[in-house]
Write a protein that binds this DNA or RNA. Structure first.
Length: 577
RNA sequence: GCGCUCUUAGCUCAGCUGGAUAGAGCAUCGGUUUUCUAAACCGCAGGUCGCAGGUUCGAAUCCUGCAGAGCGCGCCA
């Protein structure tokens, strides 16, 4: 039940019917008419700008028009206790007890579904996220994008959308060759006691390669490791598999599970690149040509060469993009073209890619590919997760690949826990760089928004515990008739904003709104709780050690919203803290 | 040089896709526990929404220009 939508519908109906009677002129579009949350200092529950939008086409003062429309709204509506017209022409509506009764019954009946966007067309989504190179465990930088993608998927699923979560494995190209060679040297270290060549810059030095090498040696007694060349393909596959084991375990520590892992090598071996290039050629988006040196290469020995290019400039990209190297192998981009063609062939309605800030420059060419192949039928939305600045002991902490100052996801989870990592990483808009302060995240206080929200839930649970009622029991509210004070209604208003929070998070793919909202709701609740210290009538449990029906239902719906929200964020709601 | 993102209180950030007197937390200072969980609450103070124009009845929000910060710009992936 989204009370803002309900009243927007109602108001739209009223003005349309007035327009039919020729008593009101409407503009071409009614998009800008809205029903919103009024600022705090007004004593009302919802407000609308309808008269300001309609004033101009009717050449009438918005205040006068507001008076006329507010009369029409109030007529035949016995849920309104008061309706005001305020300064520029806002109409402010205050609801009566009957309204809040209906509202509460509705929330109780919706239960786990409360907040879902109604009348939403069911779409098939593909969310691609993380897709980090399979050359080692995930580090903290990957973490934010991972959580962002996971929670965006949760929001979509909460709204009954079909979602496939996918990880694209870049197991092809030069980096993987270096990686495999590094593993090979580690294997020689184990078997032939040769020390690892530390001076070669193209090798991966990390200690985790030792574990990978050990596992490979132990699990493949039949392989002859004496020479690299004969086993290179096999070793590549084994190394990537081992590496992905780390990655999957990291993700699972974060509470994340992908549905698919798609291998770039498979895509290339299946000739999907050739097929995609053929397709684009037919559509006239591919040609042979030369590209200019980038600005950063102006002074180097850049050589212009003829090569296969994709016309991404047709779609607003800075330059056309190369598909093939001189040695005729495919570029990374070519593989990605094929991968996106593959996505499109699987019949998704919408594609979502979560990228790290360092890959933002890639967005234009990939949206260009999707547009070119699908003929603009399937939309792709790329979300960028900005950098995470680590702060330890009040100082910025720079990560480098050198041993020792490299924080992995595992380190992070060990230090702060899955829930704190998820909640804190989500608590900010993904467009903004995030300060991640280790000491603060571990703190069990108000400084830590996770505990603040969880504590709210735990407090509610403790009330239920004290009166021996199971918080998860269903409540039959059919015959209830509640009476709430203005302090309680203030919280109910916040509860009524939940569907709106979900709707915006969904439309804009901005999960940070959920933790922000949950914090605000919790704040209202903690505030109310403390009022009970001075005013006995505001306590939940009365003198006879009973919980009134009013309070029971009141607590129930707050806990319900917190639970629904925390489920989406993917963190626990402990009943005791 | 070009592209993307950002700039709101001393610090870290929200701000509902254009609304009303711009909101939180931290830090500072002061107060609240014989009472349902003080991991909490209450109060004081703090603002030229980077700057300059424009669109509009109305701009922190949209457009243009400028300044600053970050990231990126390969036949790497």
């Amino acid at each position: 039940m989204n009370i803002f939508d309900i009243y927007l519908e109602k108001i739209t109906k009223i003005i349309k019917s007035e327009s039919k009677n020729n008593t009101l002129k409407l503009p071409d579009k009614l998009d800008s008419v809205n029903v919103e949350i009024p600022p705090k200092h007004f004593d009302c529950d919802v407000s609308t700008n309808v008269s300001m939008v309609l004033a101009k086409p009717n050449s009438i003062n918005p205040n006068d028009l507001a008076k006329k429309i507010s009369e029409l709204i109030k007529k035949n509506d016995d849920y309104i206790s008061n309706i005001d017209v305020v300064k520029p022409g806002f109409i402010n509506i205050k609801f009566n007890q009957k309204f809040w009764n209906e509202f509460i019954k509705n929330v109780i009946n919706c239960a786990d579904d409360y907040g879902k966007v109604k009348k939403l067309k069911k779409n098939k989504y593909l969310v691609e996220f993380v897709s980090a190179n399979p050359t080692g465990p995930l580090h903290v930088g990957h973490c934010r994008g991972a959580i962002l993608g996971d929670v965006i998927s949760n929001i979509l699923k909460f709204n009954n959308q079909e979602v496939v979560k996918e990880y694209y494995v870049n197991d092809y190209g030069n980096q993987i060759i270096s990686f495999t060679r590094s593993v090979y040297f580690r294997i020689r270290e184990i078997i032939y006691k040769e020390s690892f060549p530390k001076d070669k810059p193209d090798l991966y030095p990390g200690d985790y390669l030792i574990d990978i090498a050990k596992n490979i040696v132990n699990e493949n007694k039949d392989i002859d490791f004496s020479k690299f060349e004969p086993i290179s393909d096999k070793l590549t596959k084994l190394s990537v598999d081992q590496s992905l084991k780390f990655v999957k375990s990291n993700l699972s520590n974060l509470g994340i599970k992908h549905d698919n892992f798609i291998s770039e090598t498979n895509i290339i071996n299946n000739k999907e690149v050739e097929k995609s290039v053929e397709l684009l050629k037919k559509k006239n988006f591919i040609y042979e040509g030369k590209i200019e040196a980038p600005e950063s290469e102006k002074n180097s020995n850049w050589v212009k060469r003829n090569q296969l290019l994709f016309k991404s400039t047709d779609f607003g990209d800075d330059k056309d993009r190369a598909l093939q190297k001189t040695d005729k192998t495919w570029t990374y981009f070519a593989g990605d073209v094929a991968y996106h063609n593959n996505k499109l062939n699987r019949g998704f309605d919408k594609l979502i890619n979560i990228l790290g800030a360092d890959h933002a420059g890639y967005i234009k060419r990939i949206t260009a590919v999707v547009e070119a192949i699908s003929g603009n039928k399937t939309k792709i939305k790329c979300k960028v997760s900005q950098l995470v600045k680590l702060i330890k002991d009040g100082k910025p902490f720079k990560m480098s690949k050198r041993k020792g100052d490299y924080i992995t996801v595992e380190d992070l989870i060990n230090e702060v826990g899955k829930d704190a990592a998820r909640f804190i990483m989500l608590n900010r808009s993904s467009d903004v760089e995030l300060d991640f302060d280790f000491s603060k995240v571990k703190e069990k206080s108000k400084d830590n928004p996770l505990y603040y929200v969880q504590y709210c839930y735990a407090r509610i649970c403790s009330v239920f515990r004290n009166v021996n009622i199971n918080i998860n029991d269903k409540i039959d509210v059919k015959n209830f008739n509640f009476k709430y004070s203005s302090d309680e209604i203030r919280i109910l208003k916040k509860v009524s904003e939940w569907p709106k929070c979900i709707e915006i998070s969904l439309n804009k793919l901005e999960p940070h709104r959920i933790p922000v909202y949950l914090y605000e709701l919790s704040s209202e609740f903690h505030s109310y709780w403390n009022m009970g210290k001075d005013r006995e009538e505001l306590r939940f449990i009365n003198k006879d050690n009973k919980l009134s029906e009013d309070k029971l239902v009141f607590l129930k719906i707050i806990s319900q919203v917190i639970k629904n929200g925390m489920n989406i964020v993917g963190v626990d709601t402990p009943e005791k803290m």
